[in-house]
Amino acid sequence: MARSALATAKAVDLDAFDSDAAAAVPQPRAASPASAPRAKKYRSWTALKVIGSGALGIVLAGIVWEIIATVNPFFLPHGLEVWDLLAANPLVFLRNAGSTLQVTMVGFSCSFLLAFLLATVMVHSKTVERVIMPLVVILKVTPSVAIAPALVIAFGFGFLPKYIVAGLMVFFQLLVSTLMGLRSVDPQTMDIAKTLHASKLDVLFRLRLPYALPFIFSAVKVCLPVSVIGAVVAEYVAAGQLTGLGAAIEIAASSGDMARVFANIAVLAVLGLGLSFLVTFAERFLLSWHPSSAHN
């Protein structure tokens, strides 16, 4: 065996078919990240800046608010007035908030469940998708708020029509996002599953669902506040039913009680904040592997 190890013969590598490989210079490894303590210090400084600027914005808005309230008390109530109302009878507000929360959560959860089940079926059957999609699009372009009065007539003044409005508001977005997520499995990973003869259930639970989670979470983040809107609007419409923050705002507004209107709005804002916080918390817990969580 001739072992003429000619170093120069390596040049043969520079052939048309192989040029990309031969020309490739070993890439230097990415520079090691900055030393940990400095990075940590930098991060806490950034966090401080973020919180500080946020607080500054809120304080500035509060000052502008108070100036307007002083100049024109019919336009905005004083912050203190609103606070006094809240502090004087917190149970009333809590009860109304509970009612609105109930409408939001039941409506949203049912909508989510239905959207999820439907997306799961649609991802496996083009026919079902073709039948369902046009209906869903029609539902989407029809403002759910407009359907609310009809729902109240059909289902009475109970909670049911409110649930439906709160759910209907977000159904389309939840369905489309979930469907997109379930379809977002990396094709080569799908190939691996196919060569292993993975069952549809295997693929659904071990591939599709985890891949869909980021899509589902971003949809939930957007949709939960929208469901709150649905709940409040349904409470407006279902006059005669005196529960919920929506109804409370209606009643306060009709008697010109600005402070009470804003007290209820403040409770709504806190409610929305709380829900957003819960979703973000769940997302961080479940999606720690996802690149998006690295930036949070």
Binding site: D186, Q188, D191, I192, T195, H197, L207, P210, W289, H290
Partner: peptide, 15 residues
Amino acid sequence: KNIGLVPQSPALLPW
């Protein structure tokens, strides 16, 4: 399960 596939990309599950 007699086929072991190694595709072009690693195709690993990121989670």
